[in-house]
Write a protein that binds this DNA or RNA. Structure first.
Lengths: 221, 221
DNA sequence: ACATAGTCATAACACTTGTTATGCGAATGG
DNA sequence: CCATTCGCATAACAAGTGTTATGACTATGT
């Protein structure tokens, strides 16, 4: 009965890719049915035929994002610190596709922060990613490639570093070419790997509100 | 002639604060003239009286954001590493106001990435902030509180770390309370301060060893 | 007191948005 | 070969958007 045979799923994928392209170009603020339709060379009638409402459309687009992020070729690396490095490199916008994905990701933060449900989804996603990173950090510590310390804390720090680097690279790609991103990441990992001077494990800020003395190690004074 | 005397500027500030509140609550995606008007207990006629177009309104709101960021009480800290720490602490969402500001900031990334002009503004802003940070890092190095190394690179890394921590804290405030943010930052600074070996200790992957990701062109498309 | 000018509500405007209804064509099943 | 069903363009729809008059109100200057 259809004009072309079993293309229902394939057509849905086409639509999702058009959504992807619109998102990469104009972000969520510029995501409209008309924009997707023209990007696809069709009309809104086609879109509503496959997705009853815009909500379903963006949901499927976000599924595509997550699926792409999950199924993209991960870097292979031996256990320990190289695995940590590979996981972080996989986050950075080192290629055109990774740049698009990260750009969409950042764009989704606006709508996500406005909606508690979506906000929770993002938080959960980051927590999961952090969990994986923590395991990698732990094995690296067991191998003696990273100094002791709460792996959860180290993973959170590493993820923060990578996330911030993503944002900076998106806004100033000329100042943060792939090579520079890798350089920054490797410097960060090197500083992590170097044995840390002894500092009091208990945070001195627990008693006072916040903003206590300068960092742990006081060279002079 | 006016209903109340010299309140022109004061009224503009009122409007800007209403814009601020709407942005903090719903982000740029939820910023409409009606929303601002009801938030202010007025109508759109008032808004257009003080700001001819929405463009001017959001521009002024962003000016307010920048002005607030610039004029907020900065942490005082002696030169060297404490100054670096203070500058980074000033970025983090440690208070309710700082959280609002950062939430608006993140929200603006969506619209900024869609508009090259705004994108350039943001890039310039971050570059400037990075420049200041670099100077602080340099003096800390002169004081021997930080090991040698390109201060520009160190500043970029520190900014990335703070930025990413902001994002994480916004999405999972329960997992990243102020105390934890400070703890993470101090850990990061401690690892920076510790003298870095030449990457020999037990790290098989040299800094420029393998890199599956070819440094191809980045943005394009 | 009167004219004037700033303040702002009211309301209409042109436009875009997501959604829905209608209908035409094509491919298939009987 | 005809009826049916899917694919999709066309177009109308209501709601919401930014923008633009219009006019009433009020405090001020003279």
């Amino acid at each position: 009965m259809p004009r072309t045979k079993g293309d229902h799923e394939a057509r849905r994928r086409d639509v999702s890719e058009a959504v992807w392209r619109v998102l990469a170009a104009h972000g969520f603020g510029g995501l409209t049915l008309r924009a997707v339709a023209t990007e696809l060379g069709a009309t809104t009638g086609l879109l509503t035929h496959y997705f009853p409402a815009k909500r379903d459309l963006v949901a499927h687009a976000l599924d595509v994002l997550e699926q792409r992020s999950a199924s993209r070729p991960r870097r292979a690396a031996g256990p320990g610190l190289p695995a940590v490095r590979a996981a972080l490199l996989d986050i950075l916008p080192l290629t055109a596709e990774a740049t698009d994905a990260n750009r969409i990701w950042v764009s989704s933060w606006d709508v996500a922060l406005a909606d508690p449900a979506l906000s929770g989804d993002h938080a959960r996603r980051y927590a999961q990613s952090r969990g994986k990173l923590r395991d990698l950090v732990a094995t690296a510590q067991e191998l003696g490639e990273l100094p002791a310390g709460d792996p959860e804390l180290i993973a959170a720090g590493a993820q923060s570093f990578a996330l911030g680097l993503v944002v900076q690279a998106l806004f100033a790609p000329a100042s943060f070419p792939p090579q520079r991103q890798v350089e920054l990441l490797d410097d960060y990992l090197a500083s992590l790997a170097s044995p840390r001077a002894a500092m009091s494990p208990a945070s001195p800020s627990s008693s006072r509100g916040e903003d206590p003395a300068p960092p742990g190690r006081h060279p002079g004074r």
